[in-house]
Simulated assay, not measured.
Amino acid sequence: MTATASSPSPLTLISGGSRGLGRNMALAVARQGHDILITYRSQQAEAAAVVAEIEAFGQRAAALPLDVGQSDTFDAFVDAVRAQLTTWGHDRFDHLVNNAGMGVHAAFTETTRAQFDALVDVHLKGPFFLTQALLPLLADGGRIINISSGLTRFALPGYAAYAAMKGAVEVLTRYQAKELGARGIAVNIVAPGAIETDFGGGAVRDNAQLNAFVASQTALGRVGLPDDIGGVVASLLSPANRWVNAQRIEASGGMFL
């Protein structure tokens, strides 16, 4: 599906779309007929490769640099988004997916203030103020998806600080849905379980013992893959799910039931 003058493609912005789950989300949403704007922190070549893949589908795509942990750069980022929209003949985008993140694995008793502050900046302050800054460019009737974690429902040692940030984002999601409802904007949260990516040093993917443990505790008998998550995000952005709002959608294959 490509854009035409009479029926332009929906336009979705996905933070952290150069690799891992963000890359998979971008490709899955593009296959659904959306133009895509992704952000990357440092992996410009990987981001360019994602853009090329999306353009091969016949959709428009672009990548912009952004460090979601640096909220003082958000005004400049909004200007860059506005310029890209103008290039494409748009003044608004339709969907925002707050995906960018980083992991810290540390016991509660050993978590440092620096680690905690970094998680706050990236996983709570970042999506809070990035969404706020982008709201003037988000179309009425649009969608916002925040990304959480299965770790807000079940507890695994070493993730106290990370899970606490994600729990805060889940509460924020409900407030956003309530306050943005007047504009027809639906806000939901997707909570992946353990996924084989390079997130957190790639432990779930590369540590055979951990991988086997997670698989043994998952009803479907395996660890998740990026392809298990991108389709969930694409589905929530489809017209068929326009009435889903303020919900936490866990995509974990049934972990720790």
Results as ranks from 00 to 15, higher is better:
3 A>Q: 14
246 A>L: 07
145 I>E: 06
225 L>M: 15
75 D>S: 11
145 I>Q: 04
155 A>D: 09
28 A>W: 10
69 G>H: 02
12 T>W: 05
196 E>F: 12
46 E>C: 04
176 Q>T: 00
220 L>H: 13
147 I>S: 00
49 A>N: 06
80 A>R: 13
178 K>L: 09
17 G>M: 02
226 P>M: 07
182 A>R: 10
70 Q>G: 03
182 A>L: 15
119 L>G: 05
28 A>Y: 01
104 V>E: 11
45 A>E: 08
10 P>Y: 03
199 F>Q: 01
203 A>V: 15
228 D>H: 11
49 A>G: 04
239 P>V: 06
111 T>K: 05
104 V>D: 10
42 S>C: 06
109 T>S: 14
44 Q>N: 10
192 P>C: 12
130 L>S: 04
92 R>D: 06
142 G>D: 08
17 G>K: 01
2 T>E: 06
243 W>N: 06
204 V>K: 08
90 H>T: 13
182 A>V: 14
66 L>Q: 10
59 Q>M: 15
144 I>S: 02
74 F>K: 05
138 L>G: 06
231 G>Q: 02
13 L>Y: 00
51 V>F: 08
99 N>R: 02
38 I>E: 02
245 N>W: 03
199 F>G: 09
179 E>I: 08
95 H>S: 14
230 G>Y: 06
113 R>S: 13
46 E>W: 00
220 L>S: 10
104 V>W: 04
109 T>Q: 12
89 G>A: 03
206 D>S: 09
133 A>F: 01
228 D>Q: 10
131 T>A: 12
75 D>V: 15
111 T>Q: 04
223 V>L: 06
211 N>P: 12
199 F>I: 08
158 G>N: 04
12 T>Q: 04
83 A>Y: 07
80 A>N: 14
187 V>A: 00
19 R>F: 03
6 S>M: 14
105 H>Y: 11
37 L>R: 07
40 Y>R: 03
51 V>N: 08
181 G>Q: 13
135 L>W: 08
249 I>F: 02
102 M>R: 14
56 A>R: 11
85 L>P: 09
11 L>K: 12
208 A>H: 13
24 N>R: 11
86 T>F: 12
20 G>H: 07
165 M>G: 09
159 Y>S: 08
64 L>V: 00
181 G>N: 11
19 R>T: 13
67 D>I: 01
119 L>H: 07
76 A>D: 11
205 R>P: 03
201 G>Y: 09
208 A>K: 14
147 I>N: 01
